[in-house]
C-alpha cells in the first residue's frame, strides 16, 4: 500500500516530462487558410485574449490618473501615463495606521520566502534521500502520513500550531512563519526528491558505498550535485507557493510582520478613505510581479514544478 500511495503525484511528474517529448501526430499538413486552421487559431486567439485581458487591465489602470479612471473605460489605454500610483503603492499607501506602503510587506515577504525556501528544501531533500536510499523500518508509514497530510485542509491543523508556536515563543514572528512554511512544504517536496533519487541508477549509490562514503558523504558529493534540475524545480515551486500564501501569513504574523499578500489585501479592501483604483492595481501588480517573473523565466521547469506540486492545492 505504502509504495503505491505515491504513484499519483509521481505519474503527474512523469506526465509533465512527456509534454516535451512528442512525435509527429495529427492529420497531414493542410493549407494555411483552411477552415480548420481558421477555427483552431481563431478559438485559441480569443481564449488567449480572455486570459490576457485582466493583466492588461491591471497595467493600464495602474498607469492612469484617478480623473481619467472615473471618466473613461477600463479597457482604453491611458491618455497620460503616470507612474505616481506605483510610487504611492510602494511607499505611501496606508494599511490602518501605517502609511509606508507595500515596501514593508515586500521586504517581509522576502525575509519569509528566502529562509523558508532554503530550510524546506534542505529538510525535504535529505528526507527524500533517506527515503529513497536508506529506507528504515517505519519510514514508509511516516511518509504515507505526510502525503495524506497534503490533502487535509490546513484549517484543522492551524490552531494546534498556534499553541505550539506560542509555547515556543515564536507566535507572530517571521521565524514562526518560516517553520510553518517548512512544515507544509514538506509533503510535496519530500515526494519530489524521493521520486527523483529513486530514479537515479542504483549502481551509483552502491559504488559510493563500496568506496566507503557514508550517509552525508553520498548525499553531499554525489546525489545533490547530480540532481540540480530537481532542486531548481523545488525552488520554483516553493518561491511561488510561499510568496502567494495568504492563510498562514494572516494567521501566524502580526500587522508589522505581514507578508505582501496580506498587506495588499488590507490596502485594497480597507474601508476607510477614498478608493484609489490606480494605486490598488499598481499594488496588485507589484505583489504578482515576483511569481510572474519566476514563471516567465523558468518556462517548462515551472510546468514540471506545478505538475508535481498540484497536490498542494
Amino acid at each position: 500500500m505504502s509504495d503505491q500511495a505515491v504513484t499519483l503525484p509521481a505519474s503527474a511528474g512523469a506526465v509533465a516530462n512527456r509534454l516535451e517529448a512528442s512525435g509527429p501526430r495529427g492529420p497531414k499538413p493542410r493549407h494555411v487558410f483552411s477552415r480548420r486552421n481558421i477555427f483552431l487559431y481563431g478559438t485559441l486567439f480569443v481564449v488567449a485574449v480572455y486570459y490576457l485581458l485582466p493583466l492588461y487591465v491591471m497595467v493600464v489602470t495602474s498607469l492612469k490618473g484617478m480623473p481619467e479612471i472615473r471618466l473613461g473605460n477600463i479597457f482604453s489605454p491611458p491618455l497620460e501615463i503616470t507612474f505616481e500610483p506605483w510610487v504611492k503603492a510602494w511607499s505611501t499607501a496606508c494599511t490602518g495606521l501605517n502609511c509606508d506602503g507595500l515596501s514593508r510587506g515586500f521586504w517581509n515577504s522576502v525575509r519569509i520566502t528566502v529562509p523558508s525556501v532554503l530550510l524546506s528544501i534542505a529538510i525535504a531533500s535529505v528526507n527524500g534521500y533517506a527515503l529513497a536510499n536508506w529506507r528504515f523500518k517505519g519510514a514508509d508509514t511516516f511518509f504515507v502520513i505526510l502525503i495524506v497530510g497534503a490533502f487535509i485542509p490546513y484549517q484543522i491543523m492551524i490552531y494546534p500550531i498556534v499553541i505550539i508556536l506560542r509555547e515556543v515563543g515564536l507566535y507572530g514572528s517571521l521565524a514562526g512563519l518560516v517553520i510553518v512554511h517548512s512544515i507544509f512544504g514538506m509533503p510535496i517536496l519530500t515526494l519530489l526528491f524521493r521520486n527523483y533519487f529513486s530514479s537515479m541508477p542504483e549502481e551509483l549509490f552502491r559504488a559510493a558505498r563500496v568506496d566507503g562514503a557514508g550517509f552525508w558523504g553520498i548525499f553531499l558529493r554525489i546525489m545533490a550535485p547530480m540532481s540540480l534540475p530537481i532542486f531548481v524545480v523545488a525552488i520554483i515551486l516553493q518561491v511561488t507557493g510561499i510568496w502567494n500564501d495568504f492563510l498562514f501569513g494572516v494567521v501566524y504574523t502580526r500587522p508589522d510582520t505581514y507578508p505582501m499578500t496580506v498587506q495588499l489585501n488590507n490596502i485594497v479592501n480597507s474601508v476607510q478613505g477614498v478608493k484609489e483604483y490606480n494605486v490598488n492595481m499598481a499594488a496588485t501588480i507589484l505583489t504578482g510581479l515576483v511569481p510572474l517573473i519566476v514563471y516567465f523565466i523558468s518556462g517548462k521547469l515551472f510546468v514540471r514544478g506545478i505538475a508535481a506540486g498540484a497536490v498542494k492545492g
Partner: peptide, 13 residues
Amino acid sequence: TIFLYPFALSFIV
C-alpha cells in the same frame, strides 16, 4: 504560457 500564467498569481491578486 498565456493560458498558464494566471496560475502563477496568488488568489489574492
